[in-house]
Computed example of a mutant assay.
Amino acid sequence: MNPTLFDEDLLKTIAAEPRRPLLFVNATVHTLDPVIGHLTGADLLLGTREIVGVGTGLHTAAEDDGAVVVDCTGLTIVPGVVENGTVAGLRRRPSDRVGTLAPGNPATFAVISGALDLEHVIWRPEQAAAIVVDGEIALVDGRRLAPTPIEPASASPADSPYLGLWIDETGFIHQELAADGRYDEARGGRPHAYQGSFWIEGDRIVYRDDLGFWAYGSFRDDVLHHAGYVFHRR
Rank of each mutant, 00 (worst) to 15 (best):
T4I: 09
L5Q: 02
F6L: 06
F6M: 00
F6Y: 04
F6V: 01
D7S: 00
L10V: 13
L10A: 10
K12S: 11
T13F: 08
L22G: 00
L23W: 12
L23P: 04
F24H: 10
A27F: 02
T28Y: 04
T31M: 03
L32V: 13
V35A: 13
L39E: 00
L39Y: 03
T40G: 09
A42C: 08
L44K: 09
G47K: 01
G47H: 08
G47Q: 05
R49H: 12
E50R: 13
E50F: 10
G53C: 07
G55R: 06
T56R: 14
T60Q: 15
E63Y: 13
D64H: 10
D65M: 15
A67R: 12
V70S: 02
D71K: 06
G74T: 12
L75G: 02
L75D: 01
I77K: 13
V78P: 04
P79S: 13
G80F: 08
V81P: 07
E83H: 14
T86G: 06
L90T: 06
R92D: 10
S95C: 05
R97H: 15
A102K: 10
P103K: 07
N105H: 14
P106H: 03
T108S: 14
F109Q: 01
A110H: 15
V111L: 02
I112M: 08
S113D: 15
S113M: 07
L116E: 08
H120T: 15
W123Y: 14
A128Q: 05
A129K: 00
A130F: 08
V132H: 08
G135T: 03
G135A: 08
L139S: 01
G142Y: 00
G142P: 01
P149Y: 01
E151S: 09
P152V: 14
P152G: 03
S156W: 14
S156C: 07
D159Q: 15
D159L: 15
S160I: 05
W166P: 02
E169P: 05
T170A: 11
T170W: 06
G171P: 00
G171A: 04
F172M: 09
F172W: 03
F172C: 10
H174K: 13
Q175P: 02
Q175D: 11
A178C: 09
A179H: 12
A179E: 15
A179G: 05
D180K: 07
D180G: 09
D180P: 05
G181W: 14
R182M: 11
D184I: 13
D184R: 13
E185R: 12
A193E: 07
Y194Q: 11
W199F: 10
G202Q: 03
I205R: 00
Y207H: 13
D209G: 01
L211F: 09
L211E: 08
W214G: 01
Y216M: 07
D222W: 12
H226A: 11
H226Y: 05
H226K: 14
V230Q: 03
V230D: 04
V230H: 05
F231I: 03
R233L: 03
R234F: 12
